[in-house]
Computed example of a mutant assay.
Amino acid sequence: MRKLNISLSGEKTKIEIEVLGRSYPDSTNDWDKNWITSVVHITIPGYVAQFTCELRTDELADFADELTAMHENLEGTAAFKHIEGAICMKGTIDNLGRILWEAETYYPPGDGAVLQFEFNSDQSYLTSSIRQLHTILSSFPVIEEL
């Protein structure tokens, strides 16, 4: 079985979200079916962090759309906003194709430790990240509520 992940990389920094599977595959509630169990891996100068959390497929789909628009237009921002705040990321691209990423993790969500950091990358990483997101979403598509 292939590893399903999305990576954001930059200068001495890497955020990787590995998707393990649907959190509640047997649920009869469409809202619950969109939760996916994931492992977040973060490597930044001076820190290595890893934790498991549940993300949502609709959050990943929104992020994929925003990254795609950023890549096509070479302007704007793209943000991943987790409903429980376990991981949030926002990238802003400048007119030279450089991206400033602002990230925050909160584990465990609600009452845990907070890690905030920034890093720079460039547009050359976007194609791979967008492709990774589409691979995840083809394996775990958003289930629309009826």
Results as ranks from 00 to 15, higher is better:
M1R: 12
L4F: 11
N5G: 01
N5Q: 14
S7C: 11
S9L: 10
S9W: 03
G10R: 04
G10D: 02
K12P: 00
T13Q: 02
K14E: 14
K14Y: 06
I15P: 03
E18H: 04
E18S: 10
E18C: 07
V19A: 00
V19L: 07
V19E: 01
L20K: 15
L20W: 09
G21K: 05
R22V: 05
R22A: 11
S23E: 12
D26N: 15
T28I: 11
T28H: 13
D30K: 11
W31E: 10
D32S: 14
D32I: 00
I36R: 00
I36Q: 01
T37A: 12
S38P: 05
V39M: 04
V39R: 08
V40P: 02
T43E: 14
G46L: 06
G46F: 08
Y47C: 05
E54A: 14
E54W: 03
R56T: 12
T57I: 04
D58W: 13
D58E: 14
E59N: 03
E59R: 00
D62C: 04
D62S: 14
F63K: 01
A64P: 00
A64I: 00
D65P: 01
L67D: 02
T68C: 05
A69R: 15
A69Y: 09
A69S: 12
M70R: 04
M70S: 05
M70C: 07
E75S: 13
G76M: 11
T77S: 15
A78Q: 08
A78M: 09
A79Y: 00
F80P: 01
H82P: 00
H82C: 15
G85R: 04
A86N: 07
I87W: 01
C88P: 00
C88A: 11
C88E: 10
M89A: 13
K90P: 02
I93H: 06
D94E: 05
G97E: 06
G97N: 05
R98P: 00
R98A: 09
I99C: 05
L100S: 09
L100F: 07
W101Y: 15
E102Y: 04
E104P: 03
T105P: 07
T105E: 02
Y107E: 03
P108L: 09
P109C: 06
P109A: 13
D111M: 08
G112R: 06
G112V: 06
V114G: 03
V114T: 10
L115H: 09
Q116A: 12
F117K: 01
E118M: 11
E118A: 08
N120A: 08
S121R: 04
D122I: 10
D122F: 13
Y125P: 00
Y125F: 15
T127Y: 08
T127C: 10
S128N: 13
S129I: 05
R131H: 14
R131V: 09
Q132R: 07
Q132E: 15
Q132P: 07
Q132M: 12
L133N: 02
T135A: 15
I136S: 00
I136C: 02
L137W: 00
L137E: 03
S138T: 08
P141C: 07
P141A: 06
I143V: 14
I143S: 02
E144H: 07
E145L: 10
E145V: 08
E145R: 12
L146M: 07
